[in-house]
Simulated assay, not measured.
Amino acid sequence: MPEPVRILVCACLLGEKVRYDGGHKRDLFLIETMGPFVDWVRVCPEVDCGLPVPREAMRLVVDPKRPRLVTNITGIDHTDRMERWAKARLDELSALDLRGYICKKDSPSCGREPAGVFTRMFIDRFPHLPLEEEGCLADPLLRKRFLRRVKA
């Protein structure tokens, strides 16, 4: 059996209850189908940077120069906190042999379109690593392309 590849993944997709509402988004395809072949490196930018569970929902305020991570009701801006944490975490991740990143669709911190605060910094730091949102892996063509890049 081949050596498992190391892939960064959003913790909520592994079933961790880290979402703003205390829930998770456990993805059975990732856990059951890909799991035996992957050494998952979990990340939850919001919790890992020190925000509680549960917490106020946030949104990404799109600014072409620098997107902001702002709470929906109180308007608290967590961008600086997230960026400080992300810089340190990306330094740690650079020491690992990461082969890809599976991010959480529509997350203001780790979504892909538009890129959340952490995902944007990840792409800047690791521009050649394959990245995909969890839902896209249900598409056989996108999944095949992602896995081919992970193995390259």
Rank of each mutant, 00 (worst) to 15 (best):
E113R: 14
R125L: 05
L131Q: 05
F126D: 07
A138M: 14
D106A: 15
S107D: 04
D124M: 10
C110P: 13
V117R: 08
F118C: 02
C136P: 00
P140T: 11
D106E: 14
M121T: 04
P114L: 05
S109H: 03
F118D: 04
E113N: 13
P140S: 11
S109F: 09
A115H: 02
P130V: 12
I123M: 14
S109I: 01
E133N: 06
M121S: 05
S109V: 07
A138G: 14
R112F: 13
R125Y: 07
E133Q: 13
I123C: 04
P130I: 08
A138K: 14
H128P: 00
E132P: 02
P140V: 09
A115L: 09
H128A: 14
L131C: 11
I123V: 14
G111P: 09
P140A: 09
G116A: 04
E133K: 06
F122Y: 14
D124Q: 15
F122M: 03
A138T: 12
M121G: 00
I123Q: 12
E133R: 02
G111S: 07
P108H: 03
L137M: 11
A115D: 00
E132R: 12
D139A: 04
L137V: 03
P114T: 04
P108Q: 04
P114F: 01
D139T: 07
S109L: 10
C110D: 13
V117C: 01
L131R: 03
P130R: 01
G135V: 08
T119C: 09
R125M: 01
R120Y: 00
I123F: 03
L129Y: 12
L129K: 10
D106W: 13
